[in-house]
């Protein structure tokens, strides 16, 4: 993904939600995307699948997948790609499953859309998947409606649906936020097992640095629609460069703490309709300089694989 900028037409004006977001995910790699709520993580994910709401407009940039440009594909081509090559697990399984169809109907429908199999074969596949994701009594689950399942079970159903047609890239958008704290770890472990087993590339979206520390090889830190820092996870925790990242890490009681949402930072999340000029973080940055409000930092390589967008590292002193 390169230089992706995106706007939303809203009632109150144009919201410049994404500002030249650039990152890559290697094959079989788990890439974490962290940031506060509303910073544009979900929108980034939806862009990859081309599922943006109709008021969204991509202004610059491109998204390449296995060498092919996704933004110029036809709708039919995208339809074939979704579910089979790229798939997604959503944040809120309770509303993301269709309430008026049994989950069995929904998952077999996905299988049968992409593969020429009959209903029985699709059901067999579904039962296998349900077993694999640790759902007890898969046959019963198959006939259940979403509201009859617990949040954890719903999310397991989601995961099996996402993996039903063996995608290469799985986008997991805050897969544990909406489920019970006690089973968040189970879901996460399950995802990682499946990642190894299916050799998946994963874009793991979260606002929880603890999760990133445990699961991701590399990580991108997003603030108000712009990437502040992209680095291998180890490097990021050892040597955070961007002031925002430093702030995040400081506010974390134990770097490996699980289930810790980002602690609050002084100042408020800026309006994206009228985002701060220059560096979007400057109103809250403790190192802010004069030029921070006028000059926009570029995402530059600081050390091998470690990129940061901050004027402090561009040799600016005033």
């Amino acid at each position: 993904m390169r230089d992706l900028s995106l706007e939303f037409e809203t009632e109150f004006g144009t919201a410049k939600v994404l500002d030249r977001v650039t990152f890559t995910i290697g094959e079989g790699e788990v890439f974490g995307l962290v940031g506060e709520t509303g910073c544009g993580k979900t929108v980034t994910a939806l862009t990859v699948l081309r599922l943006l709401p109709s008021n969204a407009k991509i202004t610059t940039g491109n998204v390449k997948f296995l060498g092919e440009e996704l933004l110029s594909k036809t709708d039919a081509e995208m339809e074939r790609l979704r579910g089979t090559k790229i798939s997604m697990v959503f944040q809120d399984p309770a509303t993301s499953l269709n309430p008026v169809f049994s989950v069995g109907e929904q998952i077999t429908r996905v299988v049968r859309t992409h593969e020429d199999v009959d209903k029985r074969a699709a059901e067999t596949r579904a039962v296998e998947l349900f077993k694999r994701v640790g759902l007890p009594d898969p046959e019963t689950v198959l006939r259940s409606y979403p509201h009859e399942l617990s949040g954890g079970m719903q999310q397991r159903v989601m995961i099996s649906m996402a993996l039903a047609c063996r995608p290469k890239l799985l986008i997991a958008d805050e897969p544990t936020t909406a489920v019970d704290v006690t089973i968040q770890a189970q879901i996460l472990d399950l995802l990682m097992e499946l990642q190894r087993e299916f050799r998946l590339s994963v874009l793991l979206i979260t606002h929880n640095l603890g999760i990133v520390a445990e699961t991701c090889q590399r990580v991108g830190v997003m603030y108000a629609g712009a990437l502040g820092e992209v680095a291998p996870t180890k490097d990021l925790f050892r040597e955070p460069l961007h002031p925002y990242t430093q702030r995040l890490l400081k506010s974390l009681p134990r770097p490996d703490a699980r289930g810790q949402p980002l602690a609050s930072i002084p100042g408020s999340v800026p309006s994206l309709i009228d985002p701060p000029t220059g560096c979007r973080y400057h109103p809250r940055c403790e190192f802010a300089m004069k030029s921070c409000s006028t000059r926009r930092p570029a995402l530059l390589e600081h050390s091998p694989g470690h990129r940061v967008a901050c004027l402090l590292y561009e040799g600016v002193t005033e």
Partner: peptide, 27 residues
């Protein structure tokens, strides 16, 4: 059509006609 589950159906590549006349209409 603005509900999450419609987005889910699209994310798994279900065709538009199916989504409109089956998934959404039943709701």
């Amino acid at each position: 059509l603005g509900e999450n589950y419609v987005r889910t159906a699209k994310a798994y590549g279900l065709p538009g006609r199916l989504i409109h006349y089956r998934y959404a209409l039943k709701n």
